[in-house]
Design a protein around this nucleic acid. Structure first.
Lengths: 190, 190, 190, 190
DNA sequence: AATGAATGAGATTTCATTCAT
DNA sequence: TATGAATGAAATCTCATTCAT
């Protein structure tokens, strides 16, 4: 008996991301993804219950990837500002390295598929950095405001700036990233 | 015949927005939009070259609307912080009043259609408020950094927070909006 | 504007019946029916909500046809035996003339689609002949037994015999039909 | 290994019958039958040449079952009417006990698979009761008419009535069955 | 201008069957 | 023998668009 093939699984992941980047979410049909991954469309249904499941699985995988990347060598004991700055740079670095992954999540999270993902599961991946923020509030280093507000100034701008770079001509060099971090810190620091 | 035209045009606009909000961008077919607007699918092609044009037109219309709303009673002579704060509140108010318009732009700007819009045209609608920022830089009130960076902290957080409200349980009352503005201002002020 | 085409409607009806007879119910796909009717598969969905609707509509149409045929020149005032005998012969004649219609109903009524038809509606078409049976019971000419039992001996044998003819070598000449009626009458008469 | 074989064989038989009853002939795919029988789809092809063979085998098995059931304790020496009445009741009893088997044959015998069965083989199972009819004709107890005609009145009504029970609300109690036999006997007796 | 009919192209998914272990 | 993986073929149905009135 044959056994499920990790190579195929991986090929499907890559094909999905690549195609969504090239032709967009709506135009990425199962047939096209299959062709890109060099498998039969029917094979996709061996690995995934339906198209939805393929897209959602891909999304979750990417989110796991990024959570892993930004928490690499995570050192809880550093000063809060340093931790945030490190993560800030690592996030930009990850997006720069995998702009296609980033694009995919952007398209996905504004599609109807978004609602199929258990947000709590995703958020759990980012617990370490979130806890840093909470500790900052406790230590009166960071403003004591609703967590969604902090997010809007310490995480969301990364997306905004990366999008600006991906879609336009804005250059994201180290200097710009550092400058941007200054603004983020000014926003949230007490 | 003019009146009839405008009614159909408006019906198509509303139907497009409504449907995209209800069933998403990808599922909003020409036929469904036509049915929602109580016209024949063929009629859409009297008013628009193709589906693409319908969606793009709708997007531009919404952007015009919001630009109009946030610049209402715009007073150039006030202190810069006051102007920004007024616009900040007006933007939240507009989104709260038309969450469907907002959702539409979110979906649109992450779709492949996005590239069909002349960004310069859209940006022109927001010139007044942009000029305020530029003046702020000149007067050394606002940090002299790349404009995209300022945008990421003074405009984008609105989207982040509105999305948080639309998608989750975050409450956007006046107090929260005011608090958030404090962070935005701290970010960009010199 | 084009208007719906009776010719197409009729062509679809004929194609459906013909194909079901030739290749069976399960193999009769929408595509094949469309090809047989010389229309696009998509056109079928202009005239019918889905495949199910096409098949059910076709079934009801056939049932209407047969009800019309067996009640042609229906004369309520004749003796009950004569009425039944006339209908008996007319039914065999109709089936002989349209064996394909008959085959279709046989396949349909043993398929899962069967449950989608409102039986009451169908039965209503056969009210006149049913009323004759009821009158016969009243006049103590026909056995006073459950109506389903009468049906099993005065109507169902027609199907059995026609099926025998359609599927095998049994010959249904006037003499055999007359003989069979003798048995049917012996069964139900008081 | 023999035991294991028989268990799988039996499981496939039961699964096929059950599924055909639940979702109909056309929707009963090989995969679904395999899942229902808790075996791999590939295993079916160890026991059967193809899907067709599985369905035909199942049909023949059921026919054998019923032939066995109605001929149980078959006593050739009783009066013809008594023999027929006994068989009549035994048939109803068998159908009542295995309505799913009955339903399966009904669906099967109106499907294209029907033509794959050698009718002579099936009919041979029912020789004993058929011979009774022939003897009845010889002894001038039963009408001397074409055998298909007799069948239509002494066997087919059972199907009609059982179907009426299966599909609708008609109640098949002993009294009704007895009454129905009266009609059947009146039909065929000389 | 306005429209319902019509359709080729293509969507997602399931099928019966074979493969490789 | 027994199996889960794999797939070409085909299923139903929807799409954006054009046609004919």
């Amino acid at each position: 008996m044959r056994i499920k093939d990790d190579i195929k699984q991986e090929a499907l992941f890559e094909a999905t991301v690549k195609l969504v980047n090239e032709i967009g979410f709506a135009s990425s049909s199962v047939s096209k993804i299959a062709k890109e991954a060099c498998v039969s469309p029917a094979t996709i249904y061996v690995y995934h219950k339906n198209k939805e499941d393929l897209l959602v699985t891909t999304y979750i995988q990417i989110k796991k990837n990024i959570a892993g990347a930004i928490h690499k060598d995570f050192d809880d004991s550093l000063p809060i500002r340093d931790i945030l700055k490190t993560v800030w740079f690592k996030t930009f670095a990850h997006i720069a390295k995998h702009p296609d992954y980033f694009q995919y999540t952007e398209q996905f999270s504004n599609s109807p598929y978004q609602s199929l993902v258990d947000k709590q599961d995703i958020e759990a991946y980012f617990d370490p950095i979130v806890n840093v923020l909470l500790k900052g509030i406790e230590q009166k280093i960071i403003k004591n405001v609703d967590f969604d507000i902090l997010t809007a100034f310490i995480f969301y701008p990364i997306i905004a700036l990366s999008n600006a770079r991906v879609c336009q001509e804005f250059e994201l060099n180290d200097e710009n990233i550092e400058t941007a971090f200054t603004l983020a810190w000014d926003a949230i620091k007490l």
